[in-house]
Amino acid sequence: MERQQLREYLEQLNSTIGDLRAPDDDKNKLTGLIAEIELQLNEPKLVAGDPQTLVDQVENMITTFEQDHPRVAGILNNIMVTLSNMGV
């Protein structure tokens, strides 16, 4: 259930990136984060390092986007909570 919810949040974030008025660097960071989370979901054994860093990365992104892009920050917050609930 949580995996499906996480995938839905990732889809929401991905579709929001296309409409986002932000520098390409910020969009690329979000796209990279999505890819990293999807890799963790699909192949957790291939991801080196501490999975907790994914939650940390999402939390940092929330801080980056919360002022100018509250919708993105809200989706990121949902992703962070879901990852935490999954123990990732």
Score class of each variant (00 low, 15 high):
residue 55 V to N: 14
residue 22 A to L: 00
residue 24 D to Q: 10
residue 30 L to K: 02
residue 32 G to A: 08
residue 35 A to S: 05
residue 24 D to R: 01
residue 35 A to F: 03
residue 79 I to W: 07
residue 75 I to D: 02
residue 69 H to P: 01
residue 81 V to L: 11
residue 4 Q to Y: 02
residue 72 V to K: 02
residue 43 E to K: 04
residue 87 G to Q: 08
residue 15 S to N: 10
residue 13 L to W: 06
residue 58 V to C: 15
residue 38 E to L: 08
residue 27 K to L: 07
residue 68 D to W: 02
residue 40 Q to M: 12
residue 44 P to V: 06
residue 1 M to N: 09
residue 43 E to C: 05
residue 68 D to N: 09
residue 4 Q to W: 03
residue 39 L to I: 04
residue 62 I to C: 09
residue 17 I to Y: 05
residue 37 I to C: 05
residue 77 N to Y: 11
residue 51 P to E: 15
residue 60 N to R: 02
residue 17 I to P: 02
residue 66 E to V: 00
residue 49 G to P: 00
residue 71 R to V: 14
residue 58 V to P: 09
residue 88 V to I: 11
residue 33 L to R: 05
residue 4 Q to K: 09
residue 52 Q to M: 04
residue 48 A to S: 08
residue 17 I to T: 01
residue 14 N to D: 09
residue 70 P to T: 05
residue 23 P to H: 08
residue 27 K to G: 10
residue 25 D to E: 14
residue 87 G to C: 04
residue 30 L to F: 10
residue 5 Q to M: 00
residue 42 N to C: 01
residue 6 L to G: 03
residue 1 M to Y: 00
residue 40 Q to Y: 14
residue 37 I to Y: 07
residue 38 E to H: 04
residue 66 E to A: 10
residue 53 T to V: 08
residue 35 A to N: 12
residue 9 Y to L: 12
residue 35 A to P: 03
residue 33 L to C: 09
residue 19 D to E: 06
residue 59 E to C: 00
residue 28 N to Q: 13
residue 46 L to Y: 11
residue 52 Q to D: 12
residue 87 G to A: 08
residue 79 I to Y: 12
residue 12 Q to F: 03
residue 30 L to G: 04
residue 60 N to Y: 13
residue 17 I to L: 05
residue 36 E to L: 14
residue 62 I to Q: 15
residue 75 I to P: 01
residue 65 F to D: 02
residue 50 D to E: 15
residue 57 Q to G: 10
residue 25 D to R: 03
residue 71 R to W: 14
residue 51 P to A: 13
residue 87 G to P: 03
residue 34 I to T: 03
residue 61 M to P: 01
residue 39 L to Y: 09
residue 47 V to G: 06
residue 83 L to S: 14
residue 70 P to H: 13
residue 62 I to G: 07
residue 31 T to W: 03
residue 53 T to D: 14
residue 13 L to M: 03
residue 49 G to E: 14
residue 36 E to V: 01
residue 73 A to H: 10
residue 16 T to I: 02
residue 41 L to S: 12
residue 24 D to Y: 04
residue 10 L to W: 00
residue 67 Q to L: 05
residue 42 N to K: 05
residue 57 Q to H: 07
residue 84 S to H: 06
residue 15 S to T: 08
residue 29 K to P: 01
residue 54 L to M: 13
residue 78 N to A: 12
residue 58 V to I: 06
residue 84 S to D: 14
residue 42 N to H: 06
residue 37 I to E: 10
residue 52 Q to W: 03
residue 19 D to Q: 05
residue 68 D to I: 00
residue 38 E to W: 04
residue 71 R to A: 15
residue 88 V to A: 07
residue 11 E to N: 05
residue 33 L to N: 07
residue 34 I to V: 06
residue 40 Q to A: 14
residue 44 P to L: 14
residue 5 Q to G: 00
residue 9 Y to I: 01
residue 12 Q to A: 02
residue 16 T to M: 00
residue 19 D to F: 01
residue 13 L to G: 05
residue 85 N to F: 09
residue 26 D to E: 13
residue 34 I to D: 02
residue 82 T to M: 10
residue 77 N to F: 11
residue 67 Q to K: 15
residue 39 L to A: 15
residue 77 N to E: 15
residue 76 L to I: 04
